[in-house]
């Protein structure tokens, strides 16, 4: 349907899956009755990459993740997770995955340390030369900032503390691939910052590939090497935040001072505009500011274009010209 997914598929074909391919998803389809939730999702991930899956509610983010986790059967398409079809993943495969679940009230009577030590023990037989499993519980507890709560019962933790425990449970087996479905919902800014640091530390090791979904575009920009936008059941954009903003010709805002006046101009072609500005006025220009479209602007533009049914993908490299408002406003 969209050219983006086909071009992404051809990129994958050009670079055949090797031992560094962690995720290989091609033309994944999911149908409930007569409704197509996923109508051809294609993307891949290489070892150590952090991917953020964005998209409006109901776009199929959770469905996609649950298929990759092996918790849900797909209708059609090719899916390989760590080289294995998740529909037939065995326990050895399971041991290489980490899933951060949204906890509710399970294991409420268990103490934090007890529960982590218990769940960790299942990973012992899956330790390898390269990856020592499981994570030492004391180290893990301190990595997620729960050291002072280790003797507390899970049911007595605050919402934020429980979420940290969820993350700890997700990574206790030192996963090679970690799934995070809206990991920071309900976090305060400090907890969010700490969580981001933790994700950075995990991905810095180079062994952990991370796929996360979020509605927080700042978070996606901060954490992800690559951003995938899922809308209407397929991937409508795939690239770094930078690439996406170039791919989508959104307008940049140029501000400057001239002759004691402050001016604002929005344009798709910021570089050319600034060049013209200096050619015309030279040194008389001061306080120049160019504000590129944020990921949020890009995201909104992409999703809106998609919903309007326009073919975004026909011009994936942003060569399309769009008429910006060209009047210069004096303030």
């Amino acid at each position: 349907m969209t050219v983006v997914s086909e071009s992404a598929a051809s990129v994958l074909n050009a670079r055949p899956p090797d031992e560094n391919t962690v995720l290989d998803v091609r033309d994944l389809r999911m149908r409930y009755g007569t409704a197509d939730v996923l109508s051809g999702v294609t993307f891949g991930a290489r070892r150590g990459e952090v991917l953020a899956l964005l998209g409006p509610n109901g776009a199929g983010k959770t469905t996609t993740i649950e298929i990759l986790e092996g918790f849900r059967m797909r209708s059609a398409g090719h899916v390989e997770v760590l080289g294995v079809d998740p529909a037939h993943g065995d326990e050895r495969w399971r041991a290489r995955l980490g899933v951060v679940l949204q906890s509710w009230r399970d294991h409420a009577r268990w103490r934090v340390g007890e529960l982590l030590a218990h769940l960790a023990s299942y990973y012992v037989p899956y330790s390898t030369e390269r990856i020592r499993r499981p994570w030492d519980v004391d180290e893990l507890v301190s990595a997620v900032g729960l050291t002072e709560h280790v003797k507390k019962k899970v049911g007595q933790l605050s919402g934020g503390q429980r979420r940290r425990l969820d993350v700890a449970i997700g990574i206790v087996g030192r996963p090679e691939l970690l799934f995070l479905d809206e990991p920071t919902v309900g976090f305060d800014p400090e907890a969010r910052r700490e969580f981001h640091d933790l994700v950075h530390r995990l991905s810095d090791s180079g062994d952990t590939t991370i796929l996360l979904t979020t509605h927080d575009l700042d978070e996606a920009e901060k954490l992800a090497d690559r951003i995938l936008i899922l809308a209407g059941g397929s991937i409508i954009a795939d690239g770094s935040a930078d690439e996406l903003s170039r791919q989508m010709p959104t307008e940049a805002e140029v501000r400057w001072s001239h002759d004691g006046g402050r001016f604002v101009h929005t344009t798709v072609e910021a570089t050319r505009f600034v060049h013209e500005l200096f050619k015309q006025h030279g040194d008389a220009i001061s306080d120049l500011e160019v504000r590129r479209a944020s990921l949020e602007d890009t995201y909104m533009a992409l999703v809106r274009e998609h919903e309007a049914g326009r073919n975004v993908a026909a011009h994936p490299f942003g060569v399309q010209e769009r008429s910006g408002s060209d009047e210069v406003v004096a303030r």
Binding site: F71, A95, L97, V99, D106, Y122
Partner: peptide, 9 residues
């Protein structure tokens, strides 16, 4: 679900 996400859970 929690134990299902663990190998042999």
């Amino acid at each position: 679900l929690r134990v299902k996400a663990i190998p042999n859970g």
